[in-house]
Design a protein around this nucleic acid. Structure first.
Lengths: 226, 226
DNA sequence: CCAAACCAAAGTGTCGACAATATAGTCGCA
DNA sequence: TGCGACTATATTGTCGACACTTTGGTTTGG
């Protein structure tokens, strides 16, 4: 596999991926400080590559850096979540619209097949559908937009933050089957090349998703008070 | 001035700003290669800071970097312009909508005053309105959205690319007065807290702007053929 | 006892040198 | 002559050391 290797992977790349994963998964807690020297010993690389990795994380909005002071993992907040989903709604809505215009028939076929496979899994009960499937679905539509800026902003920037919120708020919950139906309708709209509808359905889909995760977040903060 | 100094400015910062400016203004031609060693002697800093600056430029989509090969300034193209304005339309439309919801009355007042000043300048003929005023207008609305992700994506990412297209295509042309009217209507919508209208007018404003610049681009490419 | 200046420890910013990789030109061979 | 392997060169990737800034605690003067 991976016929086109292209682009060799540097040490800084690996450190960046590792760090990003550790942050998203919560191994490095949100709000904590990232010490360059400490991380360089931990990952057994020079401080320079850790620095580069941290800079990239800052570009992805996963950490905040202040000169001469250091970098901290972003703090999750209700307000941050709202802002994040505002832009996500707008950008992914746009992605769906462009996808309806620009995806090839083959790509749309594959999208349909993906959904069918997931439907089987859901029916067979062995469904931990959840993350993997959902991500794959959104991923294909984003890429299908064929707009490089959009793709980059979503995949390099926003998406890992979204995952970070989901993971750290423990989103293993419900909303599996209903999300599946929403996905199906979106793909139908794309199949029909109905740009308007695709955008609207995607925006709504993300809005529901926000409400769902927001509810979880408020229930947690009330738990804390109790 | 600058009461809150906050955030000391490092050598890498200065190099980044300098490089970005040189690229946007065309002093470093689009498509050309950026040699780390060469630039480090040119700007009299170490290769490390040039590297960091280039990495940031890559995050801003002003250069493209490939590992072990180097970085090139992005090439301007008709397709790239279309993609850029697609996301700009969506994001700034969203900014206008959020601004109508989130700007304070004072901020809206200042926006109105800005427009009045510009109107005077236009009337007095001394108007090279063009860039400065237009940028200031859009800037305030973007910031007025109060959405950090949106602000960052537009101001750090997209805007310099937009300017690069404008500068290098020689946009000193017309469309001054008409753009002014469009600005006025957008501010009116924001004043009325009409989110829907503000978004729609902004999207349309940017669409016109795209058509204008696109026309210029095609006229240049036909010139070349002749 | 408090406040301001000072000092020391820790961490980030910058640098020059070395290692690894890509590129272009040369040589040899069919 | 044309093609492929090899070598030399230039450029990027990585490293450890040094310079500067921040921070927290200590001392000193009121």
């Amino acid at each position: 596999m991976q016929i086109f290797s292209e682009e060799t992977i540097t040490s800084a790349d690996k450190t960046f991926f590792q760090l990003r994963s550790d942050i998203v998964e919560g191994l490095i807690p949100s709000g904590s400080k990232l010490s360059e020297t400490e991380l360089s010993t931990k990952y057994a690389v020079s401080r320079a590559v850790v620095r580069e990795a941290i800079n990239r994380l800052a570009s992805s909005h996963l950490v905040e850096r202040k000169s001469n002071i250091g970098a901290r993992v972003v703090a999750l907040s209700a307000d941050g979540l709202v802002q994040l989903y505002q832009v996500r709604e707008s950008l992914e809505g746009m992605a769906a619209r462009l996808a309806a215009a620009n995806m090839t028939d083959d790509e749309i076929d594959e999208l349909n097949q993906l959904l069918n496979r997931q439907f089987q899994e859901v029916k067979d009960g062995k469904s931990y559908y959840q993350e993997a499937g959902d991500l794959d679905f959104h991923y294909r539509i984003i890429v299908g937009s064929k707009n490089d800026h959009l793709i980059s902003m979503l995949l390099n920037g926003i998406y890992h933050l979204v995952r970070m919120y989901r993971v750290q708020l423990g989103m293993a919950g419900p909303r599996v089957t209903t999300a599946f139906d929403e996905h199906k309708h979106i793909v139908q709209a794309i199949s029909n090349r109905d740009q308007e509808l695709a955008e609207m359905l995607m925006r709504r889909h993300i809005l529901y998703s926000k409400n769902n995760i927001e509810k979880k977040l408020s229930s947690i903060s009330t738990e804390r008070k109790a």
